[in-house]
Amino acid sequence: MRLEPIANPSLARRIGFPAAALGATIVTASLLAMIAGADPFKILGLIVKGAAGSKFAALETLNRATPLIFTGLAIAVAFRAKLWNIGAEAQLYAGAIVAVLLGTGAIGSPFVLPVTAIAAMLVGALVLLGPVLLKTRLGVDEVVTTLLLNFIMLLFVSYLLEGPLKDPMGMGWPKSTALVKEARLPRIVDGLRLHWGFGLALIAACIVWVIQKRTTLGFEMRAVGANQGAARFAGMPVNTVLIQSALLSGGLAALAGWSEVAGLKGHLSLDLSPGFGYSGIIVAMLAMLNALGVIIAALFVAGIFVGSDSMSRAADVPTYIADMLLALSLLFMVLAVLLARFRVVRG
């Protein structure tokens, strides 16, 4: 078989295939539910109800979507330039560490929130800068270095939680001391359990969208990602573009950790992120690397996670069904996006 590009793919084709990918994910979900010995319609209903069936559920989904928007944006920015940042998890924890280091009384109000946010972004950017400089200077593949940094960072957090940042009142539970009140993100509406991290995530998505679509840097990122040789030939500073993408990407991922600590948890622990850095890859790919699409994709992914947790408590289907569905939806979607633009020909 051979792939032949379609000059002007029809609207039906461009919408039909992604829709089919979504359909295939739902069919697989039903099959998995049946394997687990449950009624598929009941399970799907429970997932939807658990994700958006009540005010509490919907707010939970929005809260869960917040870090996913940040990591999704981080991945979208990097992948657009074909910079394979698989280390968003490490950058997320870097941001969380900064939030705790500066937010537990080191800085007085009223500047503590903007200062911790900017410092978190800087440190997150630095965490990714290392692998990128290794790539641009020495040609070391960034996939493996960023992946390995995730493991190193988690061990570093574990060390901090048992040493310098340990909460003396933690009763042996490894968590940090709590942030002071001024360093916490306020709620958007009084009485509703949704913090300003969500609002900031939406703003970040709009800013990234503007950068992607309306600035020279955004154009250069796309050009470098599409064809590095051609971009270099056209006189673009390829390495500089890669480094700029990395700084932006690392900074965004760090905000995920910062907002989880400052907005939701109030302290740092080893279970701060159940793999938000990795789920960000799914979010970014489902959004086809579009910044505004990231918001929708993050809500979808968060909904599946929150809905499956709630479903799992009600029915005897393991909550890991969520991770399976999301991995499958990623694979279905990349295939669908390809088939929307290419025709499969024999021979």
């Binding site: 698989i86 890991y320 069904i321 399976m324 999301l326 991995a327 990623l330 990349v334």
Partner: peptide
């Protein structure tokens, strides 16, 4: 993309094992 598919396979195989 070998990067995206590979990571997708890792996520799928890991979650299938857990499930």
């Amino acid at each position: 993309s070998q990067h995206v598919v590979g990571l997708g396979i890792t996520l799928l195989a890991t979650s299938t094992s857990s499930f």
